[in-house]
């Protein structure tokens, strides 16, 4: 019997061959991503081989190194090792600031686009999404080119007499935040746009008729309704920012090390400590899973 209402009822025209349709994706992702992630977990508990690789011997050294400093030969009494904790804390702070910047610019932008006439919305959305399709590396390099000490931005600011001395932006915390903000801004705009577009403006109009002020309407009526879109946008910006590599590497310099650079260095750089890199990756992955878990739980609660 044909299902009425299209997508709303679950159609099962292809149910008899469902397994064969799903198997290629399960096998590809299961074999080349799920198993590798589990193997990475195993590697984080192995002993490091110098010059990369591992020795198959159980060890907690990677996690121990993350938290404690035991001196050059490993037999000093352990003291707390702040280096890596600082790098993780800095990553969380940088990602949080980038998320807030994206929200402050992204929300008004999404709101403005969603309140345009239907015909021009698509064009505005198109303008916001184009940069997302441009290579992230090229975008980050462009940002570096623009804000560097002798770059066009400083030239313009000095040339017009707004500044007397060039702005030292490159290799600062702010440059990294700006880079992350620039990388993931469209991720904030799109879900908020989708939420505002569905928002029923009759609610705002009713509140306005009852003498609610402009900002009261925003705070007490709009924000609670479009909150799921805001949360989705924040997660879409925060999660990739946390493990970002390009923005901190190209814009931040050595002083602004983030998790991504720390992990990269264990495999591609001088450090060459695979179990430690695997452990750092596991910690990053766990942090992301915690964020996603709370998100899924809040979503489930919204639907009840």
């Amino acid at each position: 019997m044909a299902a009425v209402g299209g997508g709303r009822t679950v159609s099962s025209a292809f149910a008899p061959i469902r397994l064969w349709l799903l198997l290629p994706s399960w096998l590809t992702i299961g074999f080349f991503l799920l198993i590798p992630v589990l193997l990475m977990l195993v590697y984080s508990f192995l002993t490091k081989e110098f010059r990369g690789g591992v020795i198959w011997e159980f060890s907690l050294a990677a996690y121990d190194q993350f938290l404690f400093d035991r001196g050059l030969f490993g037999d000093d009494p352990p003291t707390i090792q702040w280096t890596y904790i600082t790098i993780f804390a800095r990553s969380i702070i940088q990602a949080t600031i980038a998320t807030i910047m994206c929200l402050l610019i992204g929300f008004p932008t999404a709101w403005y686009i969603a309140t345009r006439p239907a015909s021009s919305r698509a064009v505005w959305l198109f303008l916001v999404t184009v940069p997302y399709w441009v290579n992230l590396l090229i975008r980050t390099v462009s940002m570096k080119f623009l804000i560097r000490e002798n770059g066009p931005m400083n030239e313009a600011l000095l040339g017009t007499g707004i500044l007397d001395a060039p702005l030292q932006l490159i290799n600062t915390d702010f440059a990294v935040q700006l880079g992350l903000f620039y990388s993931y801004l469209p991720f904030m705009v799109l879900p908020i746009y989708a939420a505002v577009e569905r928002y029923n403006f009759a609610l705002s109009e009713a509140a306005a008729d009852l003498y609610a002020s402009h900002w009261t309407i925003m705070r007490s009526i709009v924000l609670p309704v479009v909150k799921p879109g805001i949360i989705a946008g924040c997660i879409l910006v925060f999660v990739p920012s946390l493990g970002a590599f390009l923005a901190p590497d190209l814009l931040g310099g050595a002083k602004n090390f983030m998790i991504g650079s720390l992990i990269e260095e264990q495999f591609k750089g001088q450090a060459g400590n695979w179990p430690f890199g695997a452990a750092a990756s596991m910690i990053l992955l766990s942090m992301v899973l915690v964020v996603l878990f709370f998100y899924a739980r809040s979503q489930a609660r919204e639907q009840v």
């Binding site: 990475m40 695979w274 695997a278 990756s281 990053l284 992955l285 992301v288």
Partner: peptide, 16 residues
């Protein structure tokens, strides 16, 4: 593949 951070996917794939 979208949920796992890119750098983690990179590490896991290299190890595998």
């Amino acid at each position: 593949p979208i949920m796992v951070p890119e750098i983690v996917t990179a590490v896991a794939t290299l190890i595998f």
